[in-house]
Amino acid sequence: MTHTQKRIIANNIVMVLSTTSALIGMGFLFWILSVLIINGVDALSFSIFTNEGAPPGYENSGLKHALIGQFMIVGVATIVGVPFGILAGTYLSEYGQKSKLAETIRDVSDIMMSAPSIVIGAFVYSIVVAPMGHFSGWAGSVALTIIMLPIILRTTDDMLQLVPSTLREAAFALGAPKYKVIMQVVYRGAKVGVLTGILLGIARVAGETAPLLFTSFNDNFLNTDMGEPMASLTVTMYNYATSPYEDWQKLGWAAAFILSMFILSLNIIGRLLIMKRKEK
């Protein structure tokens, strides 16, 4: 066998192996998605959105409590996390730039983005839940805000840096003070990118379960008081899926389906926004 033949054979072997592994990977992921869709669609019904949780065996149980709880917990986290994240990102891009402080903040946020979220739950437990004496929706929001902050901060930082410095210089040349340049020129230029970052940040925290287990805890009924334990889609899903009751498990799949569709749509919208901007 010549050297060339050997190389061609080696090449073919690797090509087959890598295509196979792509197929294996895609197969598993396709499996998960189809399971999610089949079980989710099967369990979906209109009453799921209008009824609260019920003991196992009861008909007409729904996820209204979890949907509303989820919306409130994630909503508060977004309202707090987004402006703070944007302002912090503004500092990095516009003021700190390449300074040591800014670089340290960037590094620490990068690490925080991959840090185990359950640890954030334990932290919030001891600073919010323990002093209050009980679990609460607020505690869940605090945990999610801490997880969201570094994500918004880093994407804002990246997006503002993409705004050409000539735009800033032009505004400065007209005599605008720096805060006006940032608010009216830089923010405007980076609008779409920052918005994408916010969508992805919301998508990321909406799927968090571990930090809610011992902060917002759970409630099988509708509760809109953030000072009390509160249901979320993710924790409800966990509790229902691990229960031995078939009707609860079914509700768990419905929750999984609704949540995944929500998160996937946020991701797809974010992508479309980026693509649209590139076309311009």
Binding site: I32, L33, L36, G207, T209, T234, A241
Partner: peptide, 12 residues
């Protein structure tokens, strides 16, 4: 798929 929450992988 990387964006799908891990709780769903666990449930599956």
């Amino acid at each position: 798929l990387a964006a799908i929450p891990s709780v769903i992988y666990g449930m599956w």
